[in-house]
């Protein structure tokens, strides 16, 4: 409770004024991008198994053009963090994210990637959005493959709403000189215990 999020600025900041031509170009670019989003499966734990099941014959990510898993970040479009992220893995995901060229998006798959999940302890990052910017959060522990696909479809919807005239869109958000990607108060706020974790402080 008490998470006060600043509402996103509704106005688009752009140096090119959008017009009919730019909207047609946007449509084309976004169609191309959504039709073949190559995922970078940053699979760590159980969610990775459900991700693999999504890629299997029954659920089949191939119909979205996503069967080509790109394990090299240089050739990937969307980083799907499937599984929990301990602190030891944090510099790794940060580096992988930095290595991905724009345009890139991130899907946080599962409760652990979104908020730390059931692991509210010394070793777990409480949500990868404290390390990298996330576009879509897919809840579940693990989310069903249908859930992951819904998240992917949401991402596609988000991409379709993008415009290249928005200057703030393809900006790299790097780790600052203090060694953090967000201000420390924000990291602490995002990582606060909630739900059952609040009472999990007594050992006996």
């Amino acid at each position: 409770m008490g998470l006060i999020a600043t509402p996103p600025d509704a106005t688009v900041v752009s140096s090119t004024s959008p017009n009919w031509v730019t909207t047609r170009l946007d449509f084309l670019a976004n169609w191309a991008r959504t039709s073949s989003l190559w995922p970078m499966p940053f699979g760590t734990a159980c969610c990775a198994i459900e991700f693999m099941a999504s890629a299997g014959s029954r659920f089949d990510l191939s119909r979205f053009g996503m069967e080509r898993m790109s394990f090299s970040p240089r050739q990937a479009d969307v980083l799907i963090c499937a599984g929990r992220l301990p602190f030891k893995l944090a510099p790794v995901i940060r580096r992988i994210w930095d290595q991905m060229p724009q345009p890139k998006w991130a899907i946080s798959m599962g409760a652990c990637a979104s908020s730390g999940g059931i692991f509210d302890n010394y070793s777990m990052v409480q949500g990868i959005d404290t390390i990298i910017p996330v576009d879509v959060y897919v809840p579940g522990c693990p989310p069903r493959p249908e859930g992951l696909m819904y998240g992917i479809l949401l991402l596609m919807k988000k991409i379709r709403g993008e415009t290249f005239t928005d200057d703030r869109l393809r900006v790299e958000k790097l780790v600052g000189p203090d060694g953090l990607y967000l201000p420390p108060e924000r990291v602490d706020e995002l990582s606060e215990p909630f739900g059952n974790s609040v009472s999990q402080t007594r050992s006996s």
């Binding site: 602190f87 030891k88 944090a90 302890n121 409480q126 420390p184 402080t201």
Partner: peptide, 15 residues
């Protein structure tokens, strides 16, 4: 359980 340092400090050290 959650370690000695704050989450921001743990993140900074990890990164």
């Amino acid at each position: 359980l959650r370690g000695h340092f704050s989450r921001a400090e743990q993140t900074r050290q990890a990164l």
